[in-house]
């Protein structure tokens, strides 16, 4: 932003002041949570804004009573499976739509995109029955299988592949046999940024699932972090410090992961906003 004159003096001070204020407001709920998570039970309501006492006990309590380690592990397993599967299925179908020319392609593509119009809530009533009849309640497959493919990912990959140079795409059409090899060794390296973005997007969406795990989990040990927190909220509202400690434990892994993958995150989230 070379055109913008650098603000000086009072304007600069005002701008920093505003930034600081907004940053403080944004962080306030996180701050109060952290304060409570490290306070003993008889102190937590005395001075909720000040970290005037410190103990690790709520964290220990939440970790052991709340079974959060197990929940985090479950969430991780499901999110990784969903992410890998979504990337693979999207690569395959996106490749088919971008690189192959076959009868009914446009209709099929339109049908794929149409599934984006269906809110997940409209399918859950029946999906729960399906998963139940497959005996998949309280299993990783029950948590993951309904989300192994995504029309959004298919679309993203297709768009990225359409940008692959024409000669390369023609090469793919000459020989029908080597599609997978072509995809793996020629196309994939070119669209790595898109794949990374999709992976991150898939991971976050899966990790943040709330209603589905709540619906199909009846065994405590198969809760994800999200449904586990629901359980914790019901059982320990009378121990606010332990509840907040549980919240902190549940949030930390994603905070850390996002710090590491900040750049991919931005790309992942913005990939939906690109011009189609």
């Amino acid at each position: 932003m070379a055109a913008e004159r650098r603000p000086t003096g009072i304007r600069l001070l005002g701008r920093y002041g505003l930034l600081l204020f907004v940053a403080f407001a944004t962080l306030f709920p996180i701050y109060t949570t952290l304060v409570a998570a490290f306070k003993p039970g008889d102190q937590v309501l005395v001075n909720p804004l000040l970290p005037d006492s410190f103990t690790l006990e709520p964290i220990m309590t939440a970790w052991s009573d709340g079974n959060l380690g197990r929940y985090l592990f479950n969430s991780l397993v499901v999110a990784v499976v969903v992410t890998v599967a979504q990337v693979v299925t999207s690569l395959l179908s996106g490749y088919a739509f971008a690189m192959l020319d076959f009868p009914g392609r446009n209709l099929a593509f339109a049908l794929f995109l149409a599934t984006l119009l269906v809110p997940i809530e409209a399918t859950l009533v029946v999906n729960r029955r399906t998963v139940d009849s497959l005996d998949w309640l309280n299993t990783y497959q029950g948590l993951a299988v309904p989300f192994l493919a995504t029309a959004f990912g298919t679309f993203l990959i297709r768009q990225a592949l359409l940008a692959v140079p024409g000669e390369l795409r023609d090469a793919a059409r000459i020989d029908g046999a080597g599609h997978l090899a072509f995809l793996r060794y020629v196309a994939l390296p070119i669209i790595v940024p898109t794949v990374g973005a999709l992976a991150l997007f898939s991971f976050l969406s899966s990790w943040n699932q709330y209603l589905w795990p709540n619906l199909i989990t009846t065994e405590e040990s198969m809760n994800t972090v999200q449904s586990g927190l629901t359980l914790l909220r019901r059982s320990s509202i009378d121990e606010p410090n332990a509840l907040m400690a549980g919240t902190v434990i549940a949030a930390v892994p994603i905070f850390v992961a996002l710090l590491l993958f900040q750049r991919s995150l931005v790309r992942g989230l913005t990939s939906g906003a690109v011009k189609g």
Binding site: D132, L137, T218, R234, S235
Partner: peptide, 21 residues
Amino acid sequence: LQNQGGYLEVIDKYYQSGDNG
């Protein structure tokens, strides 16, 4: 033991489940 979080959850999850669940 499987804690469902409250009576309402016990009822809902029980009736949403088929024989297997």
